[in-house]
Amino acid sequence: MYKRILVPTDGSEITAKALQTAIGLARLTGAQIFAIGVKEPFPYSAISEMQPVPPQEFYDAQERIAAGRVKTALDAAAAAGITAQGHTVEALHPWEAIIDHAKAQECDLIVMASHGRRGVSALLLGSETQKVLTHSTLPVLVVR
């Protein structure tokens, strides 16, 4: 059934729930887990000397945070006896990075969390999960 499952992680509690769901599916199907952490690009402005944080310091912090989140996912998979790989990628739009990474890793399922926003807040904030659902050609399992 599923052999390669992508799990995006942002370190939230709901993402941990999605990871546990993916681990359960992987256990049932013998699949591998691919964890991804998306890093924000440096917010360049026209007045570069007014940046509050130097670019390299920003990149290092983003990598440290994303790698830590991915490591947590890999540790959970290893504890369950599931083979897993993890990657961090930089992207302006996380949903695009998730879809692109799923294709690059030849995943056949994306398991991701939804924070369950509704109404105006969902409209204003948007949803990376909703965008993945809208644009992905792969099956997406949404965990709440």
Results as ranks from 00 to 15, higher is better:
Ala46Glu: 11
Leu74Trp: 06
Gly119Tyr: 05
Ser121Gly: 09
Val111Lys: 01
Ser121Ile: 10
Cys107Asn: 03
Ile98Tyr: 00
Lys39Ser: 13
Val38Ser: 02
Ser45His: 05
Val111Ile: 04
Ala122Glu: 09
Ala67Met: 11
Val38Thr: 08
Val142Gly: 04
Gln130Ala: 15
Pro8Asp: 09
Thr21Cys: 12
His87Cys: 01
Ala61Asn: 11
Gln56Tyr: 07
Ala76Gln: 10
Ser45Arg: 11
Arg117Glu: 08
Ile14Phe: 06
Ile110His: 09
Val38Ala: 04
Glu106Gln: 13
Gln51Phe: 06
Met50Cys: 07
Val143Ala: 06
Val120Phe: 09
Pro139Met: 04
Glu90Trp: 07
Pro52Phe: 12
Ser12Gly: 07
Ala31Leu: 05
Gln85Thr: 13
Ala61Met: 14
Lys17Phe: 03
Pro41Leu: 02
Lys3Arg: 15
Gln56Glu: 15
Arg27Tyr: 08
His87Thr: 12
Ala104Tyr: 00
Gln105Leu: 10
Leu92His: 13
Leu123Asp: 00
Thr15Trp: 15
Ile82Trp: 01
Val7Ser: 05
Gly116Met: 06
Gln130Thr: 12
His93Phe: 09
Ala61Pro: 00
Val132Ile: 05
Lys103Val: 02
Ile110Lys: 08
Pro52Thr: 01
Gly86Lys: 01
Ala35Tyr: 07
Trp95His: 14
Tyr2Asp: 12
Gln51Thr: 11
Tyr2Ala: 01
Val120His: 04
Gln32Ser: 07
Glu57Arg: 10
Ala16Trp: 01
Val132Asn: 06
Ala80Ser: 12
Val7Trp: 00
Lys71Asp: 11
Thr29Arg: 05
His135Gly: 07
Ala79Pro: 05
